[in-house]
Design a protein around this nucleic acid. Structure first.
Lengths: 338, 338
DNA sequence: AAAAAGTGTGCAAACGTTCCCAAAAACGTC
DNA sequence: GACGTTTTTGGGAACGTTTGCACACTTTTT
């Protein structure tokens, strides 16, 4: 089965023009007379001409596509980011190719390399929770692939980055728990590698400190796989409960939902006694039981900003040397318990 | 910024061979001597040669990419389907381009046409709830674009289709409500256009009929926009509550969560008294309150099957004329209320 | 009236592949 | 050692674009 489409050549032949003239007319170049342009445009319209993007890409050495790496699309935070990315990309006539790392370093690397070999023009990536070694990204970047990081960003990598104000989001959530009377607040978080883990931990600590509550390292639990394996969550919960926390602050979307499930499974009684606050962009929080206070990231906007930055890099005439890290504010949403 | 990569020409020059020889050696053709092959392969490895997929696509007149249209990725059913699609596609060296219709016909058409002009080799699509006119798909199909429908399929369109056993899933859920003592069971469902709407309605009716419960049309509410606008759900709920249903069966993922929210918002008291059963692939149902009985579709598998069928069409030497509709069984998951 | 400048068009090369066709090399066979 | 076979290689066109350059024609300038 094959698509039959008309090409510039066909139009040229039909109109008795050269392919160059047709090409230029279609791209509305100044050299072509109005008359000819009209003629060509009209005919192109008639035969429903669509430029072959592959030929164009080959010639121009760019694909007008950008790659996205997220840990998983079945996660409201990431799917909202993707919506933001698409809203900008489509406007600027790029299309996006989404890949999921499922929080696996191996998968992430594989996907990135697959995308790169598919000649994407740029890459938007949130690192997997396993990722420590980003040399493979450095290599691609050095070869000229524009990269913009969002959400989970590496420390020493000079490029544009877009993140939420993790410190403040964390601080606010923790403070909220404190203000509602909690004094023994646990913190369940991602792999220590991640930027978000560090920043959110700092916010948590700062809030404790502000209210003169001692920081206890044993109340902090890390999940190496970002909650992809339910066992790691159950393990963490089992370790935390004996310490009798009266509140828990959870540091990412997947972990938040996973943790509540683990709590319910491990000890339903207690689950309803512990106050929960956590990062999540789920639009279903209102349905959750036990309820929780959520920190929402401006996911859509983050996607938009990251994409704008990436496209500006792609389309820059000269190598970009000035980079920025955009920090967007989170929002604390408090569901009143029924 | 530009990517610098080595090409077949570079290799040919470096090795004093012709491009044709190098190309054949890389593709492991029988005509080339073992010796030359080894030489070429070794060198290619050394310079980290990657075939330019765009050039290849241009020459072979196919892109090795398939388009996907779903209503939204922030929906567990669809994101699981996408995972299934990817699992097969990547194996067969296709990449996927995902587009969201957001249940809008206009957006769906726009996206499909965008994808088609991007020269995808085939299309996997679940129709939007607004879609009635699929002539634009017929046109593309007639021009040679292989299309496989899944979940929401059109009636009179001769191609492969993959669906869940909607009738049975519906029947089971409704029967479950009946067996737990409910007698006045409402049905909240999608736009009447959709195949799933009809099939699920039939299952619902059949269950009622089996237990000699009268079918009351006023207990069935349709949501034209698939629950994308929260107002349509609230409207539907407001209309239903005065009829005092003791159970409600909801016919799709988005609607199920949306309906529970609308119920809670409209009348929290009643929300906990009505027994709820609904189609949903959310992995968070255990957290929901009020709890519900869910009908889970084999989403991952549906994606896999659809992709296999699509790729078989793409790679068929002669036009395919025998089509199949695969029907996969759903699963009824009953959460015991805490 | 000739030179200069401006306008519109076409030729042909290039992007990186694949593959048809022919040519060269290696090998048997008598 | 001349001839047919087989094996291995190379030349070059093609996929559908874009674009530098040259050319022809018209208009303006001096």
């Amino acid at each position: 089965m094959r698509f039959e489409t008309s090409t510039i050549k066909d139009i040229a032949k039909a109109l008795g023009l050269s392919t160059s003239t047709v090409s230029r007319a279609l791209r509305d170049r100044y050299e072509i007379s109005e008359e000819t342009k009209k003629l060509v445009l009209a005919y192109a319209e008639k035969v429903n001409y669509r430029a072959n993007p592959i030929a164009r890409s080959l010639k121009e050495r760019r694909s007008y596509s950008i790659g996205i790496i997220v840990s998983e699309i079945a996660n409201n935070f990431f799917s909202q980011v993707i919506n933001g990315i698409e809203s900008i990309a489509y406007d600027k006539d790029y299309h996006v190719i989404i890949s999921q790392s499922h929080e696996s370093y191996k998968q992430e690397k594989l996907n990135v390399e697959h995308l790169a070999s598919r000649s994407i023009d740029g890459l938007l990536i949130a690192l997997s929770s396993e990722t420590q070694d980003i040399d493979y990204l450095r290599n691609l970047y050095a070869k000229g692939l524009p990269i913009v990081f969002f959400d989970r960003v590496p420390k020493d990598f000079e490029t544009h980055k877009v993140i939420a104000n993790n410190f403040k989001g964390s601080f606010d959530a923790t403070e909220h728990l404190i203000l509602s009377g909690k004094r023994s607040i646990a913190h369940l978080t991602n792999s220590e590698n991640l930027s978000i883990t560090k920043e959110r931990l700092e916010g948590y600590k700062a809030a404790l400190s502000k209210y003169h509550i001692e920081f206890k390292p044993e109340l902090v639990k890390y999940c190496q796989h970002g909650g992809m394996h339910s066992t790691e969550l159950e393990q963490a919960v089992k370790e935390l409960l004996p310490l009798n926390p009266d509140g828990i602050f959870i540091s990412s979307d997947r972990l938040t939902t996973g943790c509540i499930m683990a709590l319910k499974k491990t000890n339903p009684e207690v689950a309803y006694k512990i106050a929960i606050a956590g990062f999540t962009n789920s639009n279903l929080v209102e349905l959750f039981s036990p309820s929780l206070t959520s920190v929402k990231q401006p996911a859509f906007e983050m996607g938009q900003v990251a994409t704008e930055l990436l496209i500006s890099m792609i389309e820059a005439k000269r190598p970009v040397t000035e980079f920025e890290t955009r920090v967007l504010d989170t929002e604390l949403v408090n569901i009143t318990r029924r």
